[in-house]
């Protein structure tokens, strides 16, 4: 069965450098710095990344950051809560736009 996503393609991520090697180099360096320990621990950053991966629904990121969270010492309970954070923000973002809907309905309504 043909699919748009192939898990094996995650290993080929760096091949995107072929079109613009300098940009890839800058991206890679910045990316590595983003996930290094700073004011937040590597584990906290991995959990944030996992949540964002679910919010943007990137299957590559979900795979990669599930592995990363486990390798940073997280567990399924923490990771599931992180997914719920993503869901809450996505759901909340939809709901709060409902205020705009109410405003628009009120404007045209009698």
């Amino acid at each position: 069965m043909e699919t748009y996503y192939n898990p094996e393609d995650l290993q080929k991520f760096s091949t995107i450098s072929e079109g613009a090697p300098l940009l890839w180099k800058k991206f890679s360096e910045w990316y590595g710095a983003v996930f290094a320990e700073g004011a937040l621990t590597e584990r906290e950053k991995a959990l944030i990344a996992l949540a964002v991966a679910h919010a943007v629904q990137c299957p590559y990121c979900i795979d990669a950051y599930t592995q990363a969270c486990l390798e940073k010492g997280s567990n399924k309970e923490q990771m599931t809560e992180a997914v719920h954070v993503a869901a809450a923000i996505k759901g909340g973002a939809a709901l709060v736009h409902g205020v705009q809907m109410k405003n628009a309905a009120d404007k045209v309504g009698m």
């Binding site: 590597e42 584990r43 592995q67 486990l70 390798e71 940073k72 010492g73």
Partner: peptide, 14 residues
């Protein structure tokens, strides 16, 4: 030791 096919975390952190 990890309960699966992944590397262990930082020894200090765990």
């Amino acid at each position: 030791n990890p309960c699966g096919a992944f590397l262990p975390p930082s020894q200090r952190a765990i």
